[in-house]
Amino acid sequence: MASLSQSNTQRQPRTSAATKTAVLTVVLVAALAASCLLSVAFGSRVVTFGQIVNAFAHPEVTDIASDAIRLRVPRTVLAILVGAALAVSGALMQGVMRNPLADPTILGLNSGAAFAIVCSIAFVGLSTPAQYMIVALAGGALTAMAVWAVGSIGRSGPSPLKFTLAGAVIGSVLSSLTSAITLPRTDVISTYRFWQVGGVSGGRFELMAPVLPLMAVGFAVAALSARQLNALALGDQMAAGLGVDVNRARMMAWSGAVLLSATSTALAGPIGFVGLVVPHAARLIVGADYRRILAMSALIGPLLLVASDVIGRVVSRPDDVEVGIVTALIGAPVFIALVRRRSMPEV
């Protein structure tokens, strides 16, 4: 009887936690749906729900409201994709590094993409969004390879500490080189500054299409890495004792993070705080299991980015405040609040 009572006592907290997670998931899904509707409705011109339905039901209509709606739909889709990619990428990086402050910005990937963009503008003369997208993707990927190579130097092989230091150093060097190129060139600064802020206002389906397969591969790799990240969280020795090839698992998760980070940066520019804050929020909701953290991050990230984009359009109508500025304003105090919580779980 005592053992049965103890079993029931253990089962009740688990059931309660699962119920709480399910309720929060439903709430977040509803909030994301509402944010998407507001994203389509609000802008320099506000449209009604009936006009939104009419625009989708009658695609041949070309009035002002319908045209505005059709421009906002790819923007909203881009915010969803980039938000999910950045959030999952940040969760992967924090798992690989076992560092709660790891994200694409801190590890230098955004600096690599920015340096590639500046070089392409200053020395090659590239000027179209499609060209910037390809260059940023290549710059972020090459920087990630450099961080991995430097972080793997030494007899001990790759380690979270060396990765973090390598990312910080390489990111600082590339940022300095970017400044050295842009400061004497006002023409380069005037072009680069619009990309540097980070935003989804230029979202178009034809620009997204070439990058979507790489992003899909990144999400697939992230899903396959979740169980191994749980083992890596126990430490390299414990993970190896459980039969996990530590270097292979770390490289796999790192590859997924790089694909997601590079593709999102290529599409929307360097948007900060999403990859840093969202995994912590997911961890507070679902605990330390990376299978749940990655899934919840893929839900919270789009919500944050779509909502930030709506806020940026509402506060400065008829102009827009780019989403990268809004996420920084929202993300900084939220992250401080998360850090101050004593119950915040470790990575």
Rank of each mutant, 00 (worst) to 15 (best):
M208H: 11
A209C: 05
P210M: 10
P210C: 10
P210E: 12
V211D: 09
V211G: 09
L212M: 14
L212F: 15
P213D: 14
P213H: 13
L214V: 12
V217C: 12
V217D: 10
F219Q: 01
A220V: 13
V221Q: 03
L224Y: 06
L224H: 03
L224D: 03
S225T: 12
S225C: 10
A226I: 03
R227T: 15
Q228E: 12
Q228W: 05
L229Q: 00
L229D: 02
L229F: 01
N230P: 11
L232G: 06
A233Q: 14
L234H: 13
L234P: 15
G235D: 07
D236A: 13
D236T: 09
Q237Y: 04
M238K: 12
M238Q: 15
M238R: 14
M238I: 08
A239F: 07
A239L: 04
A239D: 05
A239Y: 08
G241R: 04
G241P: 05
L242F: 13
G243I: 13
G243S: 15
V244I: 14
V244S: 08
D245R: 07
V246Q: 14
N247P: 12
A249T: 06
A249L: 08
A249M: 04
M251I: 04
M251D: 04
M251E: 01
M252H: 13
A253P: 06
A253S: 05
W254S: 05
W254V: 01
W254R: 01
S255W: 01
S255V: 13
A257Q: 11
V258C: 01
V258S: 10
L259D: 14
L259N: 10
S261M: 11
A262Q: 09
T263I: 11
T263D: 04
S264L: 02
S264H: 09
A266I: 06
A266Y: 07
L267R: 11
L267W: 09
A268D: 02
G269S: 07
G269Y: 02
P270E: 01
I271L: 03
I271N: 04
G272P: 05
G272H: 03
V274L: 14
G275L: 15
L276F: 12
L276Y: 15
V278K: 03
V278S: 07
V278Y: 02
P279M: 05
P279V: 06
P279D: 09
P279A: 08
A282V: 01
R283H: 08
L284E: 03
I285A: 07
I285V: 07
G287W: 00
G287L: 00
G287H: 03
D289P: 03
R291I: 02
R291T: 08
A295Q: 02
A295D: 02
A295C: 00
A295K: 00
M296W: 02
S297K: 07
